[in-house]
């Protein structure tokens, strides 16, 4: 599995298509996060913004490869695995992006709760923020996997579905991403930063299911 992953990662890196979502994410953080703001609230914002970016990265990875090149890889490894390599590449990039953003935001923010009442140690804040970012990266790639090839093939349907799916994943009650982000926002008010356990587990399961569904469909619905 490492060979297709390296190939996909190199393809993404050299195609430079990763630039727009990364720049947009940086701009989103630049607008919403300022140094000296309460750390947990900023981390919640950081995690929530990562979800649509992860979905977009999946769309980029899945559509970047020309169909003929995709066929060559799929013949060697099987179409499901070739597709899985695309999805995992996007997930890895999203996780990396979330990691960097969380570390930077933790360092520049104020280690206090809202209103400077309760101190929140930076390490404790990072321990709460990193799982939240992971949850959003996972769910974002799940949304991306379910709203691009092979599930939705026309761009006219795929892009609105991706945006709607990402929005719903962030705001709807019961979504692991919503749970993780709102735990951070509440934590910022109370000054307590619990490390979330249930949301990451839920996100891993949902994402695995989404990847499996996309992988099963890829040989049935090509080209």
């Amino acid at each position: 599995m490492t060979a297709p992953l390296r190939y996909q990662a190199d393809l993404l890196l050299r195609s430079q298509r990763w630039l727009p979502p990364v720049i947009l994410y940086a701009a989103f953080l630049g607008v919403g996060v300022q140094s000296g703001q309460p750390v947990l609230g900023s981390l919640g914002y950081t995690a929530a913004g990562l979800l649509p970016v992860a979905a977009w990265l999946v769309r980029i990875c899945v559509t970047a490869e020309p169909p003929a090149a995709r066929a060559c890889v799929a013949a060697a490894r099987g179409p499901a695995r070739a597709h899985l390599a695309c999805l995992l590449t996007a997930l890895l990039v999203a996780v990396l992006l979330g990691l960097v953003a969380t570390v930077v935001v933790t360092l520049i923010s104020d280690p206090m709760s809202d209103g400077h009442r309760v101190p929140v140690p930076r390490l404790r804040a990072a321990a709460a923020g990193l799982p939240a970012a992971l949850v959003c990266a996972l769910l974002g790639t799940a949304v991306g996997a379910l709203t691009s090839r092979p599930v939705l093939r026309s761009r006219g349907r795929a892009v609105p579905a991706l945006l709607l799916g990402a929005l719903l994943a962030v705001v709807s009650a019961g979504s692991p991403a919503q749970a993780a982000v709102s735990a951070l926002v509440t934590g910022s008010r109370t000054g307590r930063a619990p490390v979330p356990l249930l949301p990451p587990a839920g996100a891993v399961l949902l994402t695995a299911a989404a990847f499996a569904a996309a992988g099963r469909l890829v040989a049935r619905r090509s080209p």
């Binding site: 066929a71 799929a74 013949a75 099987g78 179409p79 040989a219 049935r220 090509s222 080209p223």
Partner: peptide, 8 residues
């Protein structure tokens, strides 16, 4: 494509 197992 079927022979190459690209399509099911």
């Amino acid at each position: 494509r079927l022979l190459a197992r690209l399509d099911a």
